[in-house]
């Protein structure tokens, strides 16, 4: 049985700042449950003694020297945004922060 309950879906929607209808909650509960269950089959495929990895190739210590590279121009930086003002990205207000 999936760990995804309607309450979990509502909580996730809240974190993602998405309004969901009751019908959507039901649909997402089913769909997300399927995804989680599918991923869980991996658990059965590997034994507990296989260490988790975050990268497919065993590499470490890939660094960049602290040297300034060219940045985008302000115009280029803002060119992909839906809205901008005074050289800044304009976004919907988020009310729970200062």
């Amino acid at each position: 049985m999936s760990e995804i309950t309607p309450e979990v879906v509502r909580h996730l929607a809240g974190l993602a700042r998405i309004d969901v209808t009751d019908a959507e909650v039901d649909r997402f509960t089913e769909q997300l449950g399927l995804i989680v269950d599918s991923a869980a089959t991996l658990k059965a495929a590997v034994a507990g003694d296989v260490p988790a990895t975050s990268h497919p190739i065993p590499m470490k210590n890939v660094y960049r020297e602290d040297v300034v590279l060219e940045s985008l121009s302000q115009e280029a930086a803002l060119s992909g945004s839906a809205d901008s003002e005074s050289g800044r990205f304009r976004v919907a207000a988020i009310l729970d922060e200062e």
Partner: peptide, 21 residues
């Protein structure tokens, strides 16, 4: 001199969105 994960300048008080990539 630069940011954590890119070569943009780490500076205070520059024109907005000019040290971005």
């Amino acid at each position: 001199k630069t940011k954590m994960f890119c070569g943009c300048r780490n500076d205070f008080g520059d024109e907005p969105n000019t040290n971005v990539c």
